[in-house]
Design a protein around this nucleic acid. Structure first.
Lengths: 322, 322
DNA sequence: ATGAAAGCGCTAACAA
DNA sequence: TTGTTAGCGCTTTCAT
């Protein structure tokens, strides 16, 4: 009775003054429902888990906030897990489910395979919403990676560049192939020839970016611009360029996808494409909640707001042809 | 009975074969105790909360791992909170306590004041262990900041520098004053005169570091080396130096405290002092658990392992006197 | 329209 | 040494 009033049960018929009286007393007593008792009675944990490869990657910052905000609205707790910490043998995720500690997952798989196994193990027990990747027959939310890469490439094209390389992600990453597609699209729409050897599968780490840059800059014919699929890799590209004695942006323009605080710490500051990571986090939880109440999995693409170019110092007009 | 066997209650006398039988059946059934029921019965959440100013600061990475590892051993869940997200009016922390969702906090206060209020509100309801700062009459764990700064300074001294500046932290940060002390100690032990204007209170952000560097490098008499109290600020110092057309390490050596993956992404790579952040995280939880079982607050300094100098490319021998 | 009571899964106290 | 049971605080069904 009291419980239903406090939880604003719409199906309950109660006199207005009773409602008020109950609520008044409750707030006077500073009443707060005990979480464990609720969880036990309702047999759900009111907790969701966000699992990302590395929680301290600034790219996750915004997404994490989105997840937290949306969860907070629904009165859900969020447990942060790092998938890189998951040993193949440690079925941490499974244990969480078995103990009834979490109701579902928002999961970003890393390039490593192990997580997929963990995912398998939990997927038929509780709902899982995939982030940054489509799965088979489960919910997912991804960004407009293709549009972002296209935007980045068009920016370089507009500056007069035609010798544009792409430093892409690792092979298993779906984001990588979508971003490659956006790059390719922009190039062909501008009728600019694309050299196959100028698209290099690197990785999303500074070291991978550095090696890719050095590789591309060691060729007899150098690109004058690079679209880098990930800002952390771009940090490495900047470094590789410097080591190759190539000046950014005078001799080489660099645009990266994702905009974090690191973009303004470099010299020159990085031109980037900002992605709606916050919204992705919110949508992930929203969808998980929907699944929890019985709805079917959806695959959504966040298009609002769209990717936006943040012009800084690492891009400039194409150098004159020698 | 069964419960006590599974929880390995040492005070229980039971026949060996009964124990085995119970355990065998339990594992065969894949039995896992329900978390909510335990929490309700035991009236504690088996959850601790780690609150840091900004969870995506790489400096917290290791500490977070330490917290997770120690919590995992004790079967505790960890809830990550960001104190920067805490609006003064939002008593999120308080709500967590009122709902019985967390048993205690490992709390790193930011320079901002608000958190202290939040802290006040929760401190007499559940135990709080402070990180990076001493509090009055509550547990705390800090690092050997003085030793770290001294080590950094001695490294510069050993390279022949005498014109050494200190880019310190914001005034309210206890870490800042401890690090200043270490710098001062190294200087006076080496009988090197310390200019008061060369110790500048900046902040732990790249922008603060950049401004401090530009300020110091705009003086008629420039330092040839800087001890930077925080690696993120050091990112800005590197940038400020470049903007001031001062070459690192040829004209200016830079050492920073804390060693994160960012240290190798810069050009030149940063020489740093690595701090035992992982151990600090573990100790924080260990102490919180002790408090939960009734022990009194302690103030501990992590000295094992000690701070260690990681020499990279941003420090070099002092330039010859003009 | 409101009050009473059962029961979620566990642990600890008590009986046998 | 082992089995039985009350009760943690909540929600929800069933009486009133």
């Amino acid at each position: 009775m009291v419980s239903r009033i406090l939880n604003n049960d719409p199906r309950l018929r109660a006199r207005e003054d009773t409602r008020d009286r109950v609520k008044a007393v409750a707030s006077q007593l500073g009443y707060m429902p005990n979480h464990a008792a609720r969880a036990l009675r309702l047999s759900h944990a009111e907790t969701v888990s966000l699992v990302v490869p590395d929680a301290t990657n600034p790219i996750f910052s915004e997404m994490f906030r989105g997840v937290e905000d949306e969860a907070d609205i629904a009165g859900l707790q969020v447990l942060l897990g790092q998938s890189l910490d998951l040993r193949p043998d440690s079925n941490l995720l499974r244990r969480l489910v078995d103990q009834g500690r979490v109701d579902g997952f928002v999961l970003q798989v890393s390039a490593r395979q192990e997580v997929h196994e963990a995912e398998q193990a939990i997927a038929d027990r509780v709902p899982v919403v995939l982030i940054h990747a489509r799965g088979q027959r489960r919910g997912s939310v991804i960004l407009d990676d293709e549009g972002a890469a296209q935007l980045a490439t068009e920016h370089l094209l507009a500056l007069g560049h035609t010798d544009i390389a792409m430093v892409s992600g690792p092979v298993p990453a779906q984001t990588a192939s979508r971003r490659e597609k956006g790059y390719a699209r922009a190039m062909s729409e501008a009728h600019v020839r694309r050299r196959p050897t100028w698209t290099v599968k690197a990785g999303y780490s500074p070291e991978a970016g550095r090696q890719a840059a050095r590789h591309l800059l060691s060729k007899p014919r150098r690109p004058t611009a690079m679209v880098v699929a990930n800002i952390n890799a771009a940090l490495g590209v900047l470094k590789g360029a410097r080591e190759s004695k190539v000046s950014v942006p005078d001799e080489l323009s660099v645009v990266a996808i994702h905009d974090t605080w690191l973009a303004t710490t470099t010299f020159p500051e990085l031109t980037t494409v900002r992605m709606p990571l916050y919204q992705m986090g919110r949508e992930g939880v929203r969808q998980l909640i929907a699944r929890l109440s019985g709805q079917r999995p959806e695959d959504v693409v966040i298009t609002d707001p769209p990717p936006v170019l943040v012009e800084r110092e690492s891009t400039a007009e194409a150098p004159r042809r020698r």
